[in-house]
């Protein structure tokens, strides 16, 4: 299945901004995160199609996964 992966802030360093990736059915956000060399304690926010989800959320074809470190402002 086709997943659009978006990375933000420091996660882009040495990686990418946005990439379209092929993954087998049943792939979770966690699997993709680990594949990027990121660990759970670095993760701030996980969004799938603009909604907050837990890391173990299973993805579907055409989903957009956005990964952020903890960031803030205001």
């Amino acid at each position: 299945m086709n997943i659009t992966v978006k990375l933000f802030a420091t996660f882009r360093n040495g990686r990418f901004k946005v990439a379209r990736q092929e993954h087998p059915q049943g792939t979770s956000c966690r699997t993709i995160m680990l594949g990027l060399g990121l660990s759970e304690d670095e993760i701030g926010v996980v969004l799938v199609n603009g909604r907050h989800v837990p890391l173990d959320q299973v993805l579907h074809d055409g989903d957009t996964l956005a990964l952020f470190p903890l960031v803030g402002g205001g």
Partner: peptide, 25 residues
């Protein structure tokens, strides 16, 4: 020690929020 005040804000400023608010709709 906190990632927001210790790293995110000094690096990107408050404007780091554009992308996350945009992604969250």
């Amino acid at each position: 020690d906190h990632p927001v005040s210790g790293e995110g804000l000094p690096t990107y400023g408050t404007n780091v929020l554009v992308n996350i608010l945009n992604e969250a709709g």
